[in-house]
Design a protein around this nucleic acid. Structure first.
Lengths: 197, 197
DNA sequence: GATTTACTTTACACGGTGTCAATTGACACT
DNA sequence: AGTGTCAATTGACACCGTGTAAAGTAAATC
């Protein structure tokens, strides 16, 4: 049982990640991935049933590589609702660039592929849960604005943090990651947090 | 010069609109459109160079049919910045359902097609301009929060009103149009408008 | 030495877009 | 009637990318 984690499957996943990040998800073909991995196109189908299966596997692989759960602890280690909200936005804003390409590919495939749609939904549900936790934190502190129900606030925050929204600000409007984080933090607080007089 | 506006081109555009709205943009093929228009698939290419050309033309055609510019006057007829912001959100929230299918198709094609991307950008620039006007209105009234520059506020508002954002709230979270409008109005005002003590 | 495992090579089916050439039918002009 | 032309039809085909299938090869394992 050697530490041979450079097996073909891993090489394919790495190639997928690399190409997806370089080309920001769009137009990456199976044959390109095979080429990058130094393997035949058919070998891809020995390891993954379909393009979207590969995409999904690559997403998981990337998460593991990045150590998402550890990174996420900064959000869970907060004390107040406001801190949690800030930490969530900061985590998310800094995390998205690392998964941009592969996320975009998954997001696009979603339309035409049920498996991709399900995988995307899974990921987004995780984010939504964290939005809910942040809003619950605010509510516990008595700081959630009276205009917002917990549910509505969760869903609206979730939309604010959505992938297309981030992409729009980041690339159409040319915002830096730092700017995205700080502006979104400000907006989220202004929207959801009660204002002291 | 009879009022024969039921020429083939128009029939094709109408068929496109109908199918796109029914199937919410995805999976509508050229052959389906041809069938719906009662015309051969090849006839489509006599009138439009490509699928995305057809999409773009259908978008314009739909705008004319809906009389967008007239409908929009309600926004321009406002006096205060806040009213303008509210009116913009309301207009947009009620307008999007009418163009949902065709907008989605255009939005999706955007990834792989330059012409579609340009057409989409055109439309979005119009929205952005209106966001800018609303923010300028606020600023003139001295009500734009000091945390926001005019540019940043414009871009963030634009993102709040983006198509994917609307789609997310409307269909993933199941919000009604009315709810989308009222919640977005609230959020936009809380985010951008100075709060009286 | 035989079998198994992982991968390669070649070939092909399928679906959807876009192209091309030959044909038809209706209308207009003289 | 004859000619031209315009709009649309028919049928065939090329191109691309995904996914399938079958036969072959080379190294590892028993």
């Amino acid at each position: 049982m050697s530490s041979e984690k450079t097996d073909t499957r891993t090489k394919i996943l790495e190639a997928t990640r690399k190409l997806m990040m370089e080309n920001i998800g769009s137009g990456v073909k199976m044959i390109d991935i095979a080429g990058e991995a130094g393997v035949s196109r058919q070998a891809l189908y020995l390891h993954f049933d379909s393009r979207s299966e590969l995409l999904i596997a690559a997403t998981k692989h990337l998460d593991e590589k990045l150590g998402v759960s550890e990174r996420y602890s900064v959000v869970d280690d907060t004390n107040s609702g406001i801190d949690r909200l800030d930490a969530l936005v900061e985590f998310w804003g800094n995390y998205l660039p690392h998964i941009h390409g592969i996320a975009k590919a998954l997001y696009s495939s979603r339309e035409s592929d049920e498996a991709a749609a399900a995988a995307w939904k899974d990921r987004m549900d995780v984010v939504k849960r964290e939005c809910r936790n942040a809003i619950i934190g605010l509510k516990k502190d008595g700081l959630l604005r009276s205009e917002w129900s917990q549910k509505d606030a969760t869903e609206f925050l979730w939309a604010m943090l959505s992938f297309p929204n981030w992409e729009l600000l980041r690339f159409e409007s040319g915002w830096s990651v730092k700017k995205y984080v700080s502006r979104t933090q400000v907006a989220a607080k202004q929207t959801f947090v009660k204002e002291g007089c």
